[in-house]
Amino acid sequence: MSVQVVVPSALRSEVDGASRVSVESAGSLRAVLDEVERRWPRLGRRIRDEQGELRRFVNVYVNGEDCRSLEGQETPVTDGAEVQVIPSVAGGSDIDGDAILADNFAPWVKDLGLTVEEMGADFATLRLPWSDRLAREGGAMSGQAMMAAADTATVIAISSARGGFCPMTTVQLSTTFQRPVLGKDVLVTARLTKLGRTLAFADITLTCEGAVVAHATTVYALM
């Protein structure tokens, strides 16, 4: 008896980034969520509180139907069913930034290992993980890597703002480097200062442990 549980992007860090997990349990939704909680306690407690109640602004769909309009956690779940966990609508974006990263960039950019930390109506935050391969002479992270990350973060921010990826190209990228980065991840937040019909402008702040390490501005042409 196996059920597919679809995990919202905000909770995927609890299941090693997976967008869906397979659970060997069925019968009722409660049994499925009990099994989710047993295997991934942190995921479980974000879906239900300590009394086992579904959190008020988490919606759970069984084969496409909101369990609250069915029998709640007593809703029958049969073998092969799909259980979708969806945060109720409250802004944000439901597009998958990591998928855009995987599908639209040159292999060497993918090799940077960028991941999307957060996306919003006009911004995206990417994590540029430390790697010794990114170190230049002297041991600090190379500026080229940070510029590529800033450039890439702009694409994700524009995609987030537009509700999906579209072809685009960099017109201008200007970067100032303010502090060296040694052995630590960098968070790259691109915030759109203007999104026009054919041009987008972004301001990118790169931070390491809360301190600004570099700052960039970009202009993009939207195709």
Binding site: P87, S88, A90
Partner: peptide, 8 residues
């Protein structure tokens, strides 16, 4: 406290 996913 996440309005969706509760306190921690």
């Amino acid at each position: 406290e996440s309005s969706h996913f509760g306190p921690s």
